[in-house]
């Protein structure tokens, strides 16, 4: 999809990920201490994501348990080329947390049949991360750099598990506007975090197609 040079700019070599990958190999081999190691490394991040989305301490812990057991059972399915172990693990947490809150909202259509563990069928694609080394302050600054409406749209989507349709209704904003706020917000964050050089050649990233109305 992207050219390799752009991909490598996006994913600098990362010693922490090499350690995680070794850890995941041991997990795939059924070594419990490796799971404990991975848990200790990411439990607080995993729990903070889950808690933020579910806003329910008990449910949030269930989600984290689910996600780590999912990693334990599917460690061999992790594909190194698609992103870091951390991204993979935290995206499982995110998806399970979103599923958990959507199941409590009967208006939202859930993927698949209710009896099917939805996550098993909708395991996220894992995206290459911008950089493994970004610190909290840099990310917060990038979020703070967005317009209020862009930040709000991204927060409702990512941290509250709302669909774009629900965001449109809740904020009384046309769906097209919600779409462009999310899109332009993400692009602006990307520019702040990695600079303009990372934009994929030959693809118009700005333009009049979707301006923030």
């Amino acid at each position: 999809m992207t050219d390799p040079a752009a991909a490598s700019r996006l994913r600098p070599a990362n010693p922490a990920d090499a350690a995680d990958q070794a850890c995941l190999k041991r997990i795939a081999g059924g070594q419990l201490d490796a799971l404990e190691e991975l848990y200790d490394r990411y439990r607080s991040m995993a729990y903070s994501i889950s808690l933020r989305i579910t806003a329910d301490a008990t449910l949030a812990e269930d989600v984290v348990q689910d996600a780590f057991l999912g990693a334990w059972r599917n460690a061999e399915r992790y594909a190194a080329g698609r992103g870091s172990v951390k991204t993979w693990l935290l995206s499982i947490v995110h998806h399970r947390a979103v599923d958990a809150v959507r199941r409590r909202r009967p208006t939202t259509e859930l993927p698949g049949h209710e009896q099917v563990p939805p996550l098993a069928l909708t395991l996220p694609d894992v995206w290459p991360e911008v950089s493994a080394g970004l610190d909290r302050e840099a990310v917060r600054a990038a979020l703070d750099g967005l317009s209020d409406v862009q930040r709000h749209a991204i927060e409702l989507a990512y941290f509250r598990g709302l669909t774009q349709q629900e965001i449109s209704e809740r904020t009384d904003t046309p769906l097209g506007t919600v779409k462009s706020r999310m899109r332009l917000g993400l692009l602006a964050m990307r520019r702040t975090l990695v600079g303009d050089g990372s934009e994929v050649e030959g693809y118009p990233t700005g333009g009049s197609r979707e301006t923030d109305r």
Partner: peptide, 8 residues
């Protein structure tokens, strides 16, 4: 590519 960093 931006989405994973949101959690940070």
């Amino acid at each position: 590519s931006v989405v994973p960093v949101l959690a940070e």
